[in-house]
């Protein structure tokens, strides 16, 4: 089974060049049934990555471009009067799909943001008193621009917390960039991309990821990491139990991708920057601090028990 994930990773890797680690992190996030936030400056391939992931996994895909004048109905859907039947008919919004690409999520107002974020949490939406289930699997891949850019409404911590991982793509290295400049148009490549997996397989893989064994020694390590953030004066506040659970889920998915039935500290270390980067803030720092760097520092400071 994990071979299929490798196939997906390879397929996506042909479109997003030189970002194997980020692609694997994104896949791990999906396997752990978590939502993914991709944060970076415009033009480094955030949307392309999200698109490629959805296509290669063979999932239904809708894209919502968030703007500042967006309303919740633009996401969730709206009831329209039908003259033939004489009643209201619900027209589902773009959120009713398996993979939602919420592009530039922090450009919308908090009201519109929260409409999507509720759907993420409950995997259902309630419109005009009627609760509607969203399909399964259901992912949100959101992209956002760094909060220091103009025209952004930063997501509050409580909403950031709903994303299992936040990854940053960064600039490609020079070889990858040269390949990108020489190669075909990415959009054409995307349309050519064939699904590598059925959605049934994906659900099985998600179930398998939940079964990956975590020994007591590994839980000790996760607790040591979380405990350190709570004791140390370097952080504004420590990691929550939900964050600890998120680390564990992501590490299980990572271990599955590594074709192992148990989690190693290395798995935890691999996913940690993605999982806790957006949940930790350094104390006393006002400038930009890269969350992933904070996590790297955390890994170095905590010995493996």
């Amino acid at each position: 089974m994990p071979n299929q994930i490798d196939t997906v990773a390879a397929a996506v890797g042909r479109i997003i060049l030189g970002k194997e680690h980020q692609i694997r992190l994104a896949l791990a996030c999906l396997l752990a049934r978590g939502h993914l936030l991709i944060e970076d400056i415009p033009g480094v391939g955030k949307t392309t990555l999200a698109h490629a992931l959805a296509s290669s996994l063979g999932l239904g895909f809708q894209r919502i471009q968030f703007t500042s004048d967006m309303l919740p109905a633009d996401i969730l859907g709206v009831s329209v009067y039908n003259r033939d039947t004489g009643g209201f008919q619900f027209h589902p919004g773009p959120v009713f799909t398996q993979v939602v690409l919420a592009d530039e999520v922090n450009r919308a107002t908090p009201k519109a943001q929260s409409a999507l974020l509720e759907a993420m949490e409950e995997q259902q939406v309630t419109i005009e008193g009627e609760t509607r289930r969203l399909p399964d699997p259901f992912f949100v891949i959101a992209t956002q621009n760094p909060s220091y850019l103009i025209g952004t409404f930063p997501l509050p911590e409580s909403q950031l917390d709903r994303f299992l991982m936040r990854i940053e793509l960064g600039y490609p290295d020079s070889d990858a960039e040269r390949a990108l400049l020489q190669g075909e148009d990415r959009r054409d490549l995307l349309t050519q991309l064939k699904p590598c997996m059925e959605s049934r397989t994906l659900i099985e893989l998600q179930r398998a990821a939940q079964q990956v064994y975590t020994a007591g020694a590994l839980l000790d390590y996760v607790q040591a990491l979380v405990g350190h953030t709570r004791r140390s004066v370097e952080f504004v506040h420590g990691l929550s139990p939900r964050a600890a659970l998120a680390v564990l889920h992501a590490a299980r998915a990572w271990a599955l991708m590594e074709d192992r039935n148990h989690v190693l500290p290395e798995d935890v270390q691999a996913v940690l920057p993605g999982v806790v980067g957006h949940r930790l803030a350094l104390a006393g720092e006002t400038g930009r601090v890269n969350g992933a760097d904070v996590a790297e520092q955390l890994i170095k400071q905590v010995p493996i028990p």
Binding site: P265, E266, Q269, K300, V302, P303, I304
Partner: peptide, 9 residues
């Protein structure tokens, strides 16, 4: 071994 180095690494 660095204290934070996992066995596989």
């Amino acid at each position: 071994r660095a204290p934070s180095e996992g066995p596989a690494a």
